[in-house]
C-alpha cells in the first residue's frame, strides 16, 4: 500500500492515514485477510511518530476495518470492504452535494445539471476502459 502524507496540510497526519487505508480497502487494493504494516514499519516509512500511526490504527479498529491478531499484526476484516465503501460513498455524496449546490447557485436548470453529470460520467468511464 502506498501512502502519501502531508505534514503541513490542514488534515492531521493520523486522519490522513485512516482515510488512505479506507480508500485502499474500498478500491480493492487492500484485500480482506491481508495485514496492514506494523506501527513501527509504517512510522519509519512515513517518518512520523509511532504514536501517530498507533492512533490511526485505533480509529481503524474502532471502525471495524482491521482487527489485531496476536503476534501477527492488524488484519483487514471481512466486513471492511462494505464499511469502507459506505464511508467512501458518504464522502462522495458530500462532494456531489457541494457541486450541485454550486450548480443551483449558478442558476443551472435540473436538466442542464443532469446532462452535465451524464457527460462527465461517460467521460470518466471512457477513460477507465
Amino acid at each position: 500500500m502506498l501512502f502519501s502524507i502531508h505534514a503541513d496540510g490542514p488534515v492531521p497526519i493520523y486522519e490522513q492515514i485512516v482515510a488512505q487505508v479506507i480508500y485502499g480497502v474500498a478500491a480493492g487494493a487492500v484485500k480482506v485477510g491481508s495485514f496492514i504494516p506494523s506501527v513501527r514499519e509504517l512510522a519509519e516509512q512515513l517518518l512520523v511518530h509511532p504514536n501517530t500511526v498507533a492512533r490511526a490504527y485505533q480509529d481503524l479498529e474502532r471502525l471495524g476495518v482491521v482487527t489485531p491478531r496476536r503476534g501477527r499484526g492488524m488484519e483487514v476484516t471481512s466486513q471492511a470492504p462494505t464499511a469502507c465503501r459506505s464511508k467512501r460513498r458518504d464522502l462522495v455524496r458530500r462532494r456531489i452535494r457541494d457541486a450541485l449546490r454550486e450548480a443551483a447557485a449558478s442558476a443551472l436548470t435540473p436538466d442542464e445539471i443532469r446532462n452535465l453529470v451524464d457527460e462527465e460520467l461517460t467521460a470518466v468511464n471512457g477513460k477507465r476502459r
Partner: peptide, 26 residues
Amino acid sequence: MVGMAAEGRTILISSHQIGEVERVAS
C-alpha cells in the same frame, strides 16, 4: 529516531530546522 521511539526510548532533540522535525516529533 522513529524506530527508537517505537522501542520505547525517549528522545530529546534540539534543532533550529523546524520544518524537519514537524513530522517525527510528538
